[in-house]
């Protein structure tokens, strides 16, 4: 009887300590999760702003202006090359660049 009691008390104490440790670990993890979530949110906000900025910088009127300043112009006929490949049956077919779209 006495042995049983001693074992029970020891187990109680042991589990109390374990619980205590687990509790603190959980809190630590929860803090960690919170911190990470915060940094994820921050990253997502930054990504949203960067994506908007990139879209703003890559808007067609700006690209077009710069391209023209560099002497570029919309594609014209005669600028598209043809090439020939074998189709699945082994026949040679002539295609133009851009046809695959």
């Amino acid at each position: 009887m006495r042995i049983l009691l001693t074992v029970a008390v020891a187990m109680t104490l042991g589990s109390a300590f374990t619980l205590y440790a687990v509790n603190y670990e959980t809190r630590g993890l929860a803090d960690d999760v919170k911190r990470r979530e915060k940094s994820i949110n921050k990253a997502r906000r930054d990504i949203a702003i960067l994506k908007a900025e990139r879209a703003h910088l890559a808007r067609p009127d700006r690209i077009g202006r710069h391209a023209r300043a560099l002497g570029l112009a919309p594609a014209k006929r005669g600028q598209f090359a043809t090439y020939s490949i074998s189709d699945p049956t082994g026949r040679r077919v002539t295609r133009r660049l851009g046809d695959e779209r």
Binding site: R45, I49, R54, A55
Partner: peptide, 9 residues
């Protein structure tokens, strides 16, 4: 897939 409108903070 080019962005036309987006939420930003």
């Amino acid at each position: 897939g080019r962005l036309m409108a987006s939420d930003i903070v």
